[in-house]
């Protein structure tokens, strides 16, 4: 054959964009707009979002709406049932439960959301790296996670509360969030790793790999978006878990330092008067916890459905 038949002008330089055909994704803006559009169609998720916004606003404003300070005690008005003056009643020290409940909501939400975000961040990073790494590194990383998870939780909590307590702070928000996250990220990392291990065997990951995409790229663009569903569900479960864990520490007397309230310590205080048939003190924080849980969960589900690339039309 005549080699000269192929001249330079017969070739056209492929544009970089086209070469990385795999990289073509929808513009970010339309992606999130799309998510929002589909989230709006989900009535349950929107209900959750609305409840959450209301609770959020009340947790900021609630303590100021009541004319009583959260720590003001009136010993002649102990254990009053909800009434015109005290909308949520009073507690065992004659304090207004309305301002305490909303302030407690504020602290619980802070603890829960902060813990969930930290767990999420560490979990994704750690689990993602372990899943994509060589089997050897993966094994080492998973053993480290196992070690962290096997260390007695109470020992860690007691230690950090001793180490990080400036005189007077007792169990501060910081200590509690640290206590929640110090081992809390491990299940998230395990979940992410499991997802990564499964998803990297999918055709689109393999295709991407064979087209020369880097591991980080595959992780960011394929695996994480595709495993967002289970991960998001886990995040929405981490918020209640952290709120519960704080409550359980409160049950053992290691909750947020009094007189500051949290939903967990309020519920624990309510437990004390339950045997004499006073239930509003335990019901109010429990109902607030339930609403928060419900909202986070349905919102998480809705987001999951809205974010899922495969359900997109």
């Amino acid at each position: 054959m005549d080699h000269t038949a192929y001249t330079k002008d017969m070739f056209e330089k492929v544009k970089r964009d086209e070469y990385h055909a795999d990289r073509i994704t929808r513009p970010t803006i339309s992606y999130w707009a799309d998510v929002w559009r589909r989230l709006k169609m989900n009535k349950l998720a929107m209900t959750g979002l609305v409840i959450l916004i209301i609770i959020f606003i009340m947790s900021i404003l609630g303590p100021y709406i009541s004319k009583f300070d959260y720590r003001e005690q009136d010993w002649d008005k102990i254990n009053l049932r909800p009434n015109k003056e005290y909308w949520f009643g009073t507690d065992e020290l004659g304090r207004d439960l309305f301002s305490r409940a909303w302030l407690g909501t504020r602290y619980s939400l802070l603890i829960g959301v902060a813990a969930a975000l930290i767990d999420f961040g560490i979990g994704i990073l750690y689990g993602g790296i372990a899943g994509m790494a060589s089997p050897r590194l993966d094994a080492i990383m998973m053993r480290i996670a196992e070690v962290v998870y096997s260390i007695p939780y109470m020992l860690v909590v007691v230690l950090i509360s001793v180490v990080f307590s400036d005189a007077g702070s007792g169990t501060s928000m910081f200590v509690l969030i640290l206590a929640m996250t110090i081992t809390g990220w491990v299940p998230m990392a395990n979940l992410v790793r499991g997802q990564v291990l499964a998803l990297k065997e999918y055709e689109y990951s393999l295709a991407s790999e064979s087209l020369g995409a880097s591991k980080g790229w595959i992780l960011r663009k394929h695996i994480i978006p595709n495993s967002f569903g289970p991960i998001l569900v886990n995040v929405t479960l981490t918020v209640p878990r952290a709120i519960f864990a704080e409550a359980t520490l409160g049950f053992m007397g290691l909750g947020l330092q009094v007189p500051k309230p949290s939903l967990g310590t309020l519920a624990n205080d309510g437990l004390a008067v339950m045997p004499i048939g006073i239930f509003y003190q335990i019901l109010i924080p429990s109902i607030l916890i339930s609403f928060i849980m419900f909202s986070f969960n349905v919102l998480g589900d809705g987001l999951r459905d809205a974010l899922d690339p495969r359900l997109r039309q």
Binding site: S161, V162, A167, G168, S169, G170, T171, Q257, P259
Partner: peptide, 8 residues
Amino acid sequence: EIVLENVE
């Protein structure tokens, strides 16, 4: 203002 602190 006295701060409370509970410890083990």
